[in-house]
Simulated assay, not measured.
Amino acid sequence: MTARDTAQMAGILCNDPGFHAFVAERTGQPCQDADTAARFLRAECGVRSRRELNTDPAAREAFDRLRTEVDAFTGKIPKPR
């Protein structure tokens, strides 16, 4: 994934019901829409806009870690031991 694709991937992730379930599990609050998911993602990555994921290396790294956690949660990859 190139740097400029990160914000687009974040937008796609925020519309994913599996991510909504992850957010609900993590926060203990319902997450049934992309806006709620986007607020969570921005907070987790330390950005005010998902576009910042394209230019801020630390935010992009945080997004990559978050995606790995989501992939493990949804069963796309094995959970770490």
Rank of each mutant, 00 (worst) to 15 (best):
T6S: 09
E52F: 05
A24P: 12
G28M: 00
I77Q: 09
A72Y: 06
C45N: 03
C45G: 04
M1T: 08
P80F: 04
A38N: 08
P30Q: 13
P78Q: 11
P57D: 10
P17C: 06
S49N: 13
L53A: 08
A3E: 12
F22H: 15
T27W: 04
R50P: 06
Q32D: 01
I12R: 15
E61K: 11
V70W: 02
Q32M: 00
R65V: 14
A24Q: 13
A7K: 13
D35I: 05
R48M: 07
P57C: 02
R51G: 15
Q8N: 08
G18V: 02
G11D: 14
M1F: 09
L13C: 08
V70N: 01
F19V: 08
F73E: 01
P80A: 11
R65W: 12
V23Q: 15
F40R: 00
A43H: 07
H20T: 06
R60K: 09
F19Q: 04
A72F: 04
H20C: 03
E25C: 01
I77A: 11
F22N: 13
T55Q: 10
T74E: 03
A59N: 08
D5I: 01
V70E: 01
E44V: 02
A72I: 05
P30W: 06
T27C: 13
E61N: 12
K79A: 13
A21L: 04
Q8A: 11
R39P: 00
R48I: 03
A58T: 14
D5Y: 04
C14R: 09
R60A: 13
T74F: 00
R39L: 09
F63L: 12
K76F: 10
F63A: 09
A59H: 02
K76D: 10
D56C: 10
R42Q: 12
H20A: 05
R67Y: 01
F19E: 03
T68R: 12
A37W: 01
P80W: 07
D64L: 06
D33W: 11
A72T: 07
L13P: 07
A72K: 07
T74V: 15
D56Q: 13
P57M: 03
R39T: 06
Q8K: 12
A37E: 02
A21V: 00
N15H: 12
V70A: 01
P57I: 02
R39Y: 02
K76G: 04
L53C: 10
C14I: 09
A34W: 00
I77P: 06
P57A: 09
M9Y: 08
A3V: 03
D35E: 13
G18R: 04
D16N: 15
T6F: 05
Q29A: 15
A58L: 10
F40A: 00
A24C: 10
R50F: 09
R67P: 00
R4P: 07
S49V: 04
D56V: 08
R4T: 14
P17I: 03
G75W: 08
T27H: 07
C31E: 01
Q8M: 06
R26D: 15
A7D: 15
A3P: 02
L13E: 05
K79R: 15
R65L: 15
A10S: 08
V47R: 11
V70T: 03
E52P: 05
A21E: 09
V70H: 02
A62W: 03
D16G: 08
F19W: 08
E25H: 11
